[in-house]
Structures are given as C-alpha cells and as structure tokens.
Design a protein around this nucleic acid. Structure first.
Lengths: 160, 160
DNA sequence: TTCATGTATATGCAAACGCATGAACTGTGA
DNA sequence: TCACAGTTCATGCGTTTGCATATACATGAA
C-alpha cells in the first residue's frame, strides 16, 4: 500500500514534468501571433465549450482565478476577439462568444499548434500509449469517456 | 495517419485537463502554509535536484521565466528558506541550497501533499494505469526511465 | 412583499510575471 | 594578451495575477 502511494506520486510528478517540458516547448514556437498561450487557451476553450458560454463555465476549464479570467475576457473583448452579452435568463451572468475574428484567429493558431502537438507526442509515444494517456487524462479530469479515442479497442479500459 | 494526429491531440488535451483539475484541487487544500504552490515547487525541485543547484538547472524543471525564478529565489532567500552563494567554479553562477528551515518546511508540506496526490490518483486509476502514466509522463518529460516504477513488470513498455 | 442567504461577475490593490536588456564573467581564436 | 561571441544571472518596466471584497441579481422562507 505504501508502494501504491509511491506509484501515484511518481505518476503525478511524471505528469507535471511532461506538462512543464511540453508547455515550454510549445511556448517557444513562433505560432502564437499577438496572443499568449493563456489567451489562446481561453479562445480554444470557448470554441469547445459551445457558445455562448458563461464565465463560470470557462473557469472550470481554465487554470486562472476568476478575477484574472474576467479581466482577460475584458482584454479579448477590447481586442475584438470575444463578445460579452448580458444573459437574458440570469441577470448576474454574461454570455461569451467568439467573434468571427476570434474564431478565425483561434483556427489559424489551432491548426499549427495541433501540428506541433501531434509531432511532439507521436515522436515519443506509440498509438497504444496515446490511447492510454487519453483514457487516463480524461479520467483524472473527471470526464468519463471523451471525444473519439474510445472508438478503438482499448484493453486498459477493462481496469474500470 | 490523420487519426494519429487526432489521437495525439486528444491525449494532450486530456493531459491538460487533468493537470488543470488536479492543480485546482490541490491548490484549494489548506496545506501550503505561507507559500504558494509555485514556491513549494521550487523548494521541492531544489530538494530533488541535488544541492547546490544552479538557477539554470532549476529553470529546466520549473515552468517560470528565468527572471521570475531569479526573483522568486530572492524572496525565498529573504524568508530564510534558501541560501544563495557565489559559485567558486564559475563567477557568473550562483549555487542554491535549502536552509534547514527550508528543507523542514518542504518536508512538512510535502508529506501532506503526497497524501493528497496519492488519494486523488489512486481513487481514479488502477496500479497498471499509474505505471502507464509514469512511463508515458517521463517519456514526454525527456527522462527515459525514472525513480522506482520501472521495477515492476510493465507490459506496455514493450511499445518501446 | 420583504429579508436573508447564495451565486455570478467585477473592481481595488499589492504582489508577481514576462520581455527586453544590462552587468559580470567564461572561453576561444587571432 | 586582447577582442569578441557566448553564457549566467539580475534589473527596469509595463502587464497580468491573485486575494479580498464589492456589486448585482437569484432564490427561498417568513
């Protein structure tokens, strides 16, 4: 049982190290145009969340404090990438959506970034390992299954 | 081949989501005493790097700009947790090491944090999945094998 | 209705960050 | 020996962050 603790901590440290290394590698690439990776992350999340999305919803997916996120949205609105409308169903809330410019910039950057990600990960991992990582990651993220990786037979899913 | 790209991107997104969720969860715990998770990360890294360590060495492991790291070390020195000495072998460099107080605080926090990590990961993942995550993570981190997880037979390692 | 409590987002402010650059030193080739 | 490019860390400065808190609305009970 103590070894189980050790196993878990080693796995977590490995995840953190992988995260740090790849984030640095991606950040160093010249594909981000005039926005930071965090800003891109918000645009990307917005495009995936299904717009219009609430700030609270964004906040569940982005590693930023709520006030920081609120102000980042300010800037993105000011730059014409995001629209902020009052929510007709809840006077406290706001509805966020990408503008056409925001969507377009997200797509441009996203295409290149997806290429970098694919190159970095497929260089190190087998297809089975990619599937394992997806399964494990989504599980830790609290999202049972996920997009499309579940279509292929993944023996490891037998572990629950 | 396009599916391989998709597979890799799904795996990366899963990793990011897991990272964000768990980081928030850990950050919300009341175990960090008077330091931030980033500060703890520096103390932990210092304890693992083998002291005395160079700032550049720390910088390879911590997701912070070099100037930010330099100033964080300033603060940790000011608070008596880290010592900064000139490097006798290289007049440009500095040698960093934990003070006794720094080491002690790292250990205190580390014990509790390790418990949280173990609880969070073992709740979601099987021992095999923990081993898979460690193998995959260290590979992506650019560190071939790693601490102790390699002692157990891991069938997935056959994938290279 | 009115009040109390809870939730969603915004704002004040000090601290921390990243980028560009500077200062100190190393190492190499002329 | 000197000059010059490369490396290591620190500093100036504007921007962004997090914490605490305010504001505005929602919701439920009296």
């Amino acid at each position: 049982m103590a070894s189980r603790t050790r196993l878990a901590n080693d796995a977590w440290e490995a995840l953190l190290s992988a995260h740090a290394r790849l984030m640095k590698q991606f950040a160093a690439e010249d594909i981000w145009q005039d926005l930071s990776m965090r800003e891109y992350d918000v645009l990307y999340t917005l495009s995936k969340c299904g717009e219009p999305a609430r700030i609270g919803e964004l906040h569940r997916h982005v590693l930023l404090s709520q006030p920081a996120l609120s102000r980042m949205v300010d800037r993105l609105v000011e730059r014409g990438l995001v629209e902020r409308c009052p929510d007709p169903a809840d006077g406290r809330g706001v509805r966020l959506s990408l503008t056409e410019a925001g969507r377009e910039q997200q797509r441009q950057i996203g295409r290149r970034h997806a290429g970098s990600v694919a190159r970095a990960l497929t260089a190190e991992l087998s297809p089975d390992q990619l599937r394992q990582l997806a399964t494990i990651g989504w599980k830790l993220a609290g999202q049972p299954a996920a997009t499309g990786a579940s279509t292929s037979d993944n023996k490891e899913m037998a572990h629950r």
